[in-house]
Design a protein around this nucleic acid. Structure first.
Length: 201
DNA sequence: CAGTGGATGCTCT
DNA sequence: GAGCATCCACTGT
């Protein structure tokens, strides 16, 4: 099959984010991640959708206390928390706030900009819009698995670049949860074609 | 487009 | 043994 020539968005990248960036409230970090560029092994794109999970939030994995699975959430900020979802997919979070706060931001969708061919191979798809438009899709496209759990976000294979400008951000209820389903802690880039689902209007 | 159900494995009760 | 921070294929309008 002929692969459509990808009209790659302009690769505008701010400076690399350091761990200090994550040492703040998830509600401060989450909107600032919209527009940032996430790379894993050089493959990735612009973050267009995230969700905040605070430790006081019944939907957070850390809500019930520390367990082997969520241990990374209880560690220092600036690290990746990866877990298996529905037995099939991986999902990646960035740990925020102070050590022990056990709060994190789930990365839910990217606009692909780097390594499109690698993403297409891993996903078995050509359509750019479907490569990273969901938390399980983007980990597959980037090759993120449990091996990335606990890795620092400011060192290879991870790289996160600050957003080059402040984007137009939408908020709404989080996706796919039953507890605290009304908290408006989903953040997205307004009008993006790469969201996992549209935001309610 | 909306809704439904299966796949699949791990975590915690 | 239940319950998932999901995705995809399939159905019916």
């Amino acid at each position: 099959m002929a692969r459509s020539p990808s009209p790659a968005p302009p690769a505008k990248l701010g400076p690399k984010l350091t761990r200090r960036f994550f040492a703040r409230s998830v509600h401060a970090v989450a909107p600032e991640l919209i527009g940032a560029t996430l790379l894993y092994g050089g493959v990735g794109g612009v973050i267009v959708e995230v969700e905040a999970y605070h430790h006081t939030d019944p939907a957070a994995h850390s809500y019930g206390g520390q367990t082997p699975r969520n241990a990374v959430m209880f560690g220092p900020p600036g690290y990746a928390y990866v877990y298996r979802s529905y037995g099939i997919h991986w999902c990646v979070n960035v740990v925020c706030e102070a050590k022990g706060s056990a709060s994190a931001v789930l990365i839910r969708a990217l606009a692909p900009t780097h390594g499109l061919d690698a993403m297409r191979d891993r996903r078995g798809l050509d359509d750019e819009r479907l490569l990273c438009s969901g938390p399980g899709k983007l980990t597959q496209a980037l090759g993120i698995s449990i091996a990335a759990n606990g890795l620092p976000l400011d060192a290879p294979p991870f790289t996160i670049h600050r957003r080059p400008a402040e984007p137009d951000i939408v908020t709404g209820p989080r996706i796919g949860i039953t507890k605290a389903a009304d908290y408006p802690w989903r953040y997205g880039l307004r009008g993006s074609r790469f969201l996992s689902k549209p935001f309610p209007r």
